[in-house]
Amino acid sequence: TRVETATETAWISLVTALHLVLGLSAVLGLLLLRWQFPAHYRRLRHALW
């Protein structure tokens, strides 16, 4: 049971790290898009909202 718990903890930390990385890359990508294509971003936002 001790090994299982350790594996579970490792998986949880791995998944958390993955989610953090994905979230950060998504935010960075959005910022980059907004910085590179302001007109396109505004049009996209206008279409979405």
Rank of each mutant, 00 (worst) to 15 (best):
Y41E: 07
W49K: 08
L18I: 07
L48G: 02
E8F: 04
V21P: 01
T16N: 04
G23M: 12
R43L: 07
W49P: 06
A17V: 10
G23F: 14
A17P: 03
G23K: 01
T16W: 00
R42Q: 15
Q36C: 06
L14R: 03
G29Q: 00
Y41P: 04
P38R: 15
T7L: 11
R2N: 09
V27G: 10
L22A: 14
L32M: 08
R2S: 14
A17E: 00
W11K: 05
W11C: 07
I12L: 12
L32S: 09
Y41H: 09
L20W: 04
P38A: 15
L14W: 00
L18Y: 03
V15G: 02
H19R: 04
E8S: 02
R45D: 02
L14P: 00
R2D: 12
A47T: 09
A39L: 14
R2L: 13
L18M: 09
E8N: 00
H46T: 12
V15R: 03
T5F: 02
L14Y: 04
R45C: 06
T5K: 02
Q36H: 15
G29R: 03
L18N: 03
V21S: 13
A10S: 13
L14M: 10
E4S: 11
T7A: 13
T7S: 13
S13M: 12
L31H: 04
W11M: 08
V3G: 00
W49N: 15
A26V: 11
L30P: 04
R42P: 00
L33K: 01
G29L: 14
L20M: 11
R34N: 04
A26N: 00
A39Q: 14
L48S: 05
A47P: 06
S13E: 05
R45A: 08
L22N: 01
Q36F: 07
A39V: 14
W11F: 11
L30I: 12
V3A: 04
A26D: 00
Y41C: 14
R34L: 02
R45T: 09
L48D: 06
R34G: 05
A10E: 14
R42A: 10
T1Q: 13
V3K: 02
H46S: 10
I12R: 08
L30V: 10
I12F: 07
E8H: 00
V27E: 01
T16V: 14
I12H: 06
F37G: 00
T7N: 10
E4T: 11
A26S: 11
E4C: 08
F37R: 04
T16D: 00
T1D: 07
L31S: 11
A10I: 08
L28F: 08
R42Y: 14
G29W: 07
W35K: 15
L33C: 15
V3M: 05
L44S: 03
R2M: 15
V27Y: 12
V27M: 13
T5Q: 00
L31N: 02
T9H: 11
T7I: 11
Y41D: 03
W49M: 06
V27C: 11
T16F: 10
L32G: 01
L22E: 05
T16K: 01
W35R: 15
A47F: 10
A6H: 07
A47M: 09
S25C: 14
R45G: 04
Y41L: 10
T1G: 06
L44W: 08
L31M: 10
A39Y: 12
L48A: 07
T5V: 03
G29F: 11
V3F: 07
L24T: 05
L24D: 05
V27W: 10
